[in-house]
Amino acid sequence: MASADIGIDLGTSSILVYTKGKGIVLKEPSVVAYDKDADKVKAIGEEARQMIGRTPGNIMAIRPLRQGVISDYTITEKMLKHFIQKAMGRKAFRKPRISICVPSGVTEVERKAVEEATYQAGAREVYIIEEPIAAAIGAGIDITKPFGNMVVDIGGGTTDIAVISLGGVVVSSSIKVAGNDFDEAIIRHVRKAHNLFIGEQTAEAVKMKIGTVCKRPQAETMEVKGRNVITGLPKTVTVTSEEVREALQECTTKIVEAVHSVLEKTPPELAADIVDRGIVLTGGGSLLDGFEEVISQRTGINTMTAENPACVVAEGTGRYAEVMEELGK
């Protein structure tokens, strides 16, 4: 199997494209602005993301992937086509070979849909890769050896947890709780506690600036602008990091419990390896402050975040073919 020309991390919140020799060439939000009246796509990626919550009635900002799965097939295909062309440049004569990753819990039908959309978008060959394996390769773990490695990939729509050995997944779990759920939890909390409606982008800014899942000695604060639920007028309130931690508690607990349950199902030899080697966190969601501590406290296993965690899945997807060649698969 020759190595693929492109690796694509098809994420719920962003799409990353990796090309051999160049690394990550493209990182854009997986959002499409669609004009209902004219029945055509207005903008894709970053340009479309800026339109979320700011568009007139006839233009919709659509996220064609929900929880790591295609929810709008035609739009996903158009979006993939756009990003593939952008990554390959205009002068590409040959159709590329594409490795693309999917969450570990997807059904055969969902897997087929991703494959089909990638072919339609102009691929010559398509390799489908499970997200945790791509994350492990991208994080620099040698998955070809008979040792247990545990990866927790917290993305936008799903969190994938897997124990990997000899190039394959031994035990895994995929839960539909991830970055987007953190944003929604913040939106709900601000509405309940401060009578304030805020949008997705504001919630994301709060999460990135003062979001934490672990108690901190010093609480941070941030001013948040939105619309007053009662008067309907614009209003500014101050939100603290402790409030955000409480708002995210439910999501955090679900992720930590899923990690716990995967450890319970891990064969003893591999569990012993994980105690020695630790747990690796990847994905954009792992950038949220305090995840390492929370998982370490609950499992008693040293937990670290991969370098540049938001990009590791794309890198691993792009390098998957080479790694599998070493295994002789």
Rank of each mutant, 00 (worst) to 15 (best):
221 T>G: 09
251 C>L: 07
159 T>D: 07
228 N>G: 12
37 D>A: 09
268 P>Q: 07
247 A>F: 08
27 K>T: 02
312 V>M: 14
136 A>I: 02
245 R>Y: 07
315 E>Y: 08
327 L>E: 09
1 M>R: 14
298 R>V: 07
80 L>I: 10
108 E>G: 01
114 V>N: 01
254 K>W: 08
177 V>D: 07
253 T>Y: 13
138 G>T: 00
268 P>N: 04
138 G>E: 00
186 I>S: 02
107 T>Q: 05
72 D>F: 05
274 I>K: 02
175 I>Y: 01
132 P>S: 09
135 A>N: 12
321 A>R: 12
161 I>D: 02
24 I>L: 06
252 T>M: 08
295 I>Y: 00
314 A>H: 02
135 A>Y: 11
41 V>I: 13
39 D>P: 04
182 F>E: 00
21 G>N: 10
40 K>P: 06
180 N>A: 11
203 A>D: 01
153 D>T: 12
255 I>K: 00
122 G>K: 01
53 G>M: 13
146 P>K: 12
191 R>I: 01
212 T>G: 04
241 S>P: 01
314 A>I: 01
222 M>W: 08
215 K>I: 13
57 G>W: 03
162 A>V: 01
264 E>A: 06
179 G>R: 05
26 L>Q: 03
308 N>L: 15
70 I>D: 13
2 A>H: 15
213 V>L: 01
64 P>Y: 10
72 D>P: 14
70 I>K: 15
258 A>K: 06
56 P>N: 13
171 V>D: 03
136 A>V: 04
227 R>Y: 11
278 G>A: 02
146 P>N: 08
191 R>A: 00
184 E>A: 11
182 F>Y: 09
10 L>H: 06
185 A>Y: 00
233 L>M: 13
321 A>E: 11
173 S>H: 02
260 H>F: 06
305 T>V: 10
162 A>G: 08
64 P>F: 08
224 V>S: 00
320 Y>P: 02
257 E>D: 09
86 K>Q: 11
309 P>R: 12
97 R>H: 14
263 L>Y: 02
22 K>T: 06
259 V>K: 02
107 T>M: 00
81 K>D: 14
266 T>D: 04
